[in-house]
Nucleic acid binder design. Structure first.
Length: 716
DNA sequence: AAAACATACATTTTT
DNA sequence: TGTATGTTTT
């Protein structure tokens, strides 16, 4: 049926696509057409008589899952196969087997911000000092334990040294708090699923019978919990197909265990291994450099990078003066490429740390190069979105105390900290949840009549929402928006606590329409399901490859993407490899893989820059070129960006040239640069047209009032 | 309750 | 250097 579509496959791709029964490991290098192989494999399985519903494909990101679904559709694969991320699969399993796994199906999903609230609370409850035990560190340690499926009880018995014993206390308390709140954090989703599958043989068998074919993408990024889940799910039949590239493992720091993919053949001795070594993406020149680089890693399975494309342009390595010069140089080269007919959305700039995006953005604005910054979080982390979602979460799961505390006085409704503490005291005394205590507020003697009234109004609103919480999500989100008072407070912005009132309003409306979309796409939509689903979303998916803009992103964010022209900035010691990843050889090797990932995104041309000086945290330091540069082993065109510019007044010229608004108004607090005095902050601005003057406190400590027309200031 | 002030902090990021 | 968060002030 789908046979004609498979004709274009290479021999090794065919092997991977048509291997039917038993374990299969596909080691797929960059640009080897891996995604296509997986979707073709799904099609081939179904073509050979496998029922679509028996297929379970697991990805790491929602974006990857969506892409795979789209590809499957365009291949003509009938619907029914489950294609989802590890986490959403776990949510589904946990809800289906709620009883067996000991969770309440209305659970909230806690993200890092919620987690951090709980850890802080746990530290407080344990009388531990957050200076000696920083919440972030504790959370990371807890996450590591969870990844290894170590329960608080187990850790309690094994913890011996001072730190471990304290960690055990916090971990135990933290987990108790989550239980109390009927909440699972991201790690719990995996842990509970793994424990369910390993602890309940009948559940494991049922799921094994249902999902006869398991496909796991990016297997090199699995952590231990995910590994155990995969192993359990495939234990019945051994039909597990793992695909990945050990050379693209860049998430060790968040628990990814490269040993999972390296030891696949040991776990599944009958495994067939297929290597996809041909690269259909990059020019031979780029591949040669990438190959030379990655060969410097010692802990590695040997793998070839076989080019199928012609030589292409030489790799371009540029030494810049400082980060401004670097950004300027990149912007100018992009302009050159654009004027030679290349599309802006075929180009991308990668950097090691997101902080580097700002300098880039400034240069791009000045040079008028359209760009988009691709960043992780944003939308769902906005205050107004979190507030609105918290309101809904409480309606669905009143035990969710983090959400409840968030909204109890947001927008302000005269329920201050003192009141909450009184209610909390009552709750503790009567061993009930905070929410339950709120419903009994009239019985709390320490509260005044007025406060009781306000609490009653608040609870009544939530109760109504809770009662009507069945059916489509969008109307409920709309209602919560209005009834919570959030909408009104946003409309009256300026006075309220929301500085960007208009934006915030639009964001909330966007959330409502997102809920509407979910309602339309889902057979039996429910608020609970929607909330659980969007907890697992981030908006990296918001990257728009079709708009005509250059993409700016971190090297990590670049994984899975490809561009004709790639720029990688900051190839300096301490930045790439990052100074905090230089402790051991393993970390250095991961940094090398990160660079490798960046390089192999490029199809036609690769441009690498590094600076002689870079300002980090306000200090300008002389830099050293990254050792990785020399490992590329290519005859690179080393050019100095500065050569065609005035060497002394570079920076000033750059700004003068591109900033015609030199007499524009300045506002208090703005950063400006003065030729002689350097950086400073505007204290005051008196607009007198041509004779305007401006008061600036310079970083040298002096404050000066200058005539604008003579000052020659530039905005920073 | 809001604004002003002070202080810690600072990779990578998905779920 | 900036920011994000927490604390004090009004």
């Amino acid at each position: 049926m789908n046979q004609p579509k498979f004709d274009a496959l290479t021999a090794s791709q065919r092997e991977a696509v048509f291997h039917k029964e038993g374990p299969l490991l596909v080691i797929a290098g960059p640009g080897s057409g891996k995604t296509r192989v997986i979707t073709c494999r799904i099609a081939a399985l179904i073509g050979s008589g496998v029922w679509p519903r028996a297929i379970c494909a697991i990805t790491f990101t929602n974006k990857a899952a969506e892409e795979m679904r789209q590809r499957a559709i365009s291949l003509g694969v009938p619907p029914g196969a489950q294609i989802s991320t590890f986490h959403s699969m776990c949510v589904r399993i946990l809800r289906q087997y709620a009883q067996a796994s000991g969770v309440n199906p209305a659970f909230s999903i806690y993200d890092t911000a919620d987690q951090s609230k709980c850890v802080k609370q746990a530290l407080k409850d344990c009388d531990m000092d957050s200076t000696n035990f920083p919440p972030g560190k504790m959370l990371a340690a807890i996450s590591t334990l969870k990844n290894k499926l170590v329960t608080p009880e187990a850790f309690n018995t094994s913890a011996e040294d001072f730190f471990s014993r304290n960690l055990a206390k916090v971990y135990t308390r933290y987990q108790a708090l989550l239980d109390q709140h009927n909440a699972l954090d991201f790690d719990d989703l995996l842990v509970k699923t793994a424990l369910l599958l390993e602890g309940r043989a009948e559940v494991c068998r049922e799921l094994g019978e249902r999902f006869r074919f398991l496909l796991i993408d990016e297997y090199q990024d699995t952590n231990h919990a995910q590994y155990r889940i995969a192993k359990a799910l495939a234990s019945l039949h051994g039909n597990i197909c793992a695909t990945g590239d050990p050379d693209q493992s860049i998430y060790r720091w968040r628990g990814a265990d490269i040993r999972n993919i390296l030891a696949f053949e040991r776990d599944w001795p009958s495994a067939k291994v297929v290597k996809l070594e041909e690269n259909f993406r990059s020019s031979a020149t780029i591949l040669k450099a990438a190959d030379a680089l990655i060969r410097c890693n010692r802990q590695r399975k040997d793998k070839r990078l076989v080019p199928t494309r012609p030589e292409g342009k030489p790799i371009d390595v540029v030494v810049c003066e400082d980060e401004f010069d670097e950004a300027f140089t990149i912007a100018r080269r992009i302009k050159d490429l654009a004027s030679s007919g290349e599309r802006l959305n075929s180009m991308a700039v990668f950097y090691r740390v997101n902080a580097m995006s700002r300098t880039m953005e400034e240069a791009f604005i000045r040079q008028q190069v359209p760009y988009q910054v691709v960043r992780g979080v944003e939308f769902y982390n906005r205050k107004e979105i979190r507030d609105l979602l918290a309101y809904l979460k409480v309606a669905v799961n009143p035990q969710d105390e983090v959400a409840l505390r968030r909204i109890i006085n947001t927008p302000t409704r005269g329920i201050g900290d003192v009141t909450v503490e009184k209610v909390q005291a009552y709750a503790t005394a009567h061993r009930i949840s905070l929410y339950q205590a709120l419903t009994q507020a009239s019985a709390i003697e320490t509260l005044s009549g007025a406060v009781k009234g306000r609490l009653a109004v608040f609870v009544a609103r939530l109760e109504v929402l809770k009662k009507d919480s069945a059916g489509p999500a969008a109307p409920l989100v709309q209602r919560a928006f209005t009834e919570s008072g959030l909408e009104q407070s946003l409309r009256e912005s300026g006075t309220g606590g929301y500085p960007g009132g208009q934006d915030a309003l639009e964001n909330c409306q966007e959330l409502i329409s997102a809920a509407g979309q979910y309602d339309q796409q889902t057979e039996t939509p429910s608020l609970l399901e929607w909330l659980q689903q969007i907890s697992l979303f981030s908006d990296v998916d918001a990257y728009d490859g079709t708009s005509s803009r250059v993409a700016l992103m971190s090297l990590h964010a670049a994984k899975g993407l490809e561009f004709d022209h790639v720029f990688i900035a900051g190839l300096e010691e301490g930045l790439l490899p990052h100074e905090q990843s230089c402790d051991d050889e393993q970390e250095i090797e991961e940094e090398r893989r990160l660079f490798f990932v960046g390089i192999t995104r490029a199809r036609k041309s690769l441009h690498i820059t590094h600076c002689r000086y870079r300002t980090i945290r306000g200090q300008t330091l002389r830099t050293v070129a990254s050792p990785f540069l020399f490992e590329l082993g290519v005859e690179s065109t080393i050019s100095t960006a500065k050569e065609d510019r005035d060497p002394i007044h570079d920076r000033e010229h750059r700004y003068d040239r591109s900033d015609p608004e030199i007499t524009a108004a300045f506002t208090r607090g703005e950063m400006v640069r003065h030729k002689a005095f350097g950086l400073g902050r505007v204290q005051d601005f008196t607009d007198m047209g041509d004779n305007s003057f401006v008061t600036i406190r310079f970083n040298t400590g002096q404050t000066k009032t200058l005539m604008l027309k003579y000052a020659n200031l530039t905005k920073v």
